[in-house]
Amino acid sequence: MEVDKGGYWEFLLGAKLRMTHGDGFQDLFNDFMLRVHGDDFTPIKPHGSQGDGGMDGALGNDVFQCYGAENGHVIDAARVCRKMTADFDRACATTPSMKRWRFAHNLVDGISRPLLDTLEEIKVLAAEKNIEVGFFGLHSFRKLLRRMSDDDRTAVLGVRAQDDMMLARLPEAINNLIAALMEEIKPVQETYTSRSQVPRDKLVLNNISRHWSYQIEYFLVFSPISRAVTRRLGGEKQSLLLPSFFRLRYEEMKHEGMTSSQILNTMRALLAGNVRSLDDDLREFAAMTVLADLFESCVIFEETRQEDNRDEIYDLAD
């Protein structure tokens, strides 16, 4: 499996890490470790008044602490840094046999400077105790992924890859979807009705402009056609792959600081392409139908606001 060549499994791994946070990330980490190391790895959970002793998992003399940021992005870095230091100190106090301490995270796009500086400070303290300290991130997950069977990769990441070139063919798949939708929508675009409706609070939550709100609400009535065509073209495989592709594109644009209108315009361009012909209006119509469906199903944008817009540090011992 050539994960390092940017294949399909790597795409799914990156998307999974970005979209998994908190307890979900700890569960994902445990799943990876158990499938590779079996009973040699021990997941740790607090039980009643018994805390976790500053560890989320142990492999021999290796101790792991998990941190799953919301959308793979650190907001309150100072809080995370304090937690890193406190977790290391607690692990040292409760686990005298510890030889290595690893901070497992889902920061696929890179570590923030404050976290790196804090780890360097912890390394100084750890050196006095002959303890090796480091991060456990994307590279470490890739190494585990290589050691898994296809069945385990499928179970962990959710979709079986047919080959490593599937991601490269997504633009072709999108074009085929739009072309098929054009044929389906053409005879009914003036008469079709549906009960689909975007909740008003979701439009407000994501700061969707009035212009885009009107368009999303209008084109959403055609979403059943969009979903039916997607299933017919590619079956279950494509109906799972395309949403993952668009979610990843959304996360990338969100992390770049793009506004909701900029994100929607970019998504529409990705769907409609740059073709100029007599069918342009119908192509735009089909693209907007898919875009509205992606919004309503929460593939792009969010359904609920994260409390205080903060990352959470998931340690049930607190």
Results as ranks from 00 to 15, higher is better:
residue 211 H to D: 15
residue 212 W to C: 09
residue 212 W to G: 09
residue 212 W to N: 14
residue 213 S to D: 15
residue 213 S to M: 05
residue 213 S to E: 14
residue 217 E to W: 03
residue 217 E to P: 02
residue 218 Y to S: 07
residue 218 Y to G: 07
residue 218 Y to N: 10
residue 219 F to E: 06
residue 219 F to T: 08
residue 219 F to C: 01
residue 220 L to H: 07
residue 221 V to R: 15
residue 221 V to M: 14
residue 221 V to T: 11
residue 222 F to E: 02
residue 222 F to H: 05
residue 222 F to W: 04
residue 223 S to C: 06
residue 223 S to I: 09
residue 223 S to W: 06
residue 223 S to H: 10
residue 224 P to L: 07
residue 224 P to N: 05
residue 224 P to C: 12
residue 225 I to A: 07
residue 225 I to V: 13
residue 225 I to G: 05
residue 226 S to R: 03
residue 226 S to Q: 10
residue 227 R to K: 14
residue 228 A to F: 13
residue 228 A to R: 14
residue 229 V to K: 05
residue 230 T to Q: 05
residue 230 T to C: 14
residue 231 R to Y: 02
residue 232 R to K: 11
residue 233 L to I: 11
residue 234 G to M: 05
residue 235 G to Q: 00
residue 235 G to H: 00
residue 236 E to T: 04
residue 236 E to K: 01
residue 236 E to V: 00
residue 237 K to T: 04
residue 238 Q to W: 05
residue 242 L to H: 12
residue 242 L to F: 12
residue 242 L to N: 09
residue 242 L to M: 09
residue 243 P to F: 02
residue 243 P to C: 02
residue 243 P to D: 04
residue 243 P to L: 00
residue 243 P to H: 03
residue 243 P to W: 01
residue 244 S to P: 02
residue 244 S to F: 01
residue 246 F to D: 15
residue 246 F to A: 09
residue 246 F to C: 08
residue 249 R to L: 13
residue 249 R to S: 13
residue 250 Y to P: 01
residue 250 Y to C: 01
residue 251 E to D: 13
residue 251 E to R: 10
residue 251 E to K: 14
residue 253 M to E: 15
residue 253 M to C: 05
residue 253 M to K: 07
residue 254 K to H: 09
residue 254 K to M: 08
residue 254 K to P: 00
residue 254 K to V: 01
residue 255 H to G: 12
residue 256 E to Q: 10
residue 256 E to T: 00
residue 257 G to E: 13
residue 257 G to C: 11
residue 257 G to H: 04
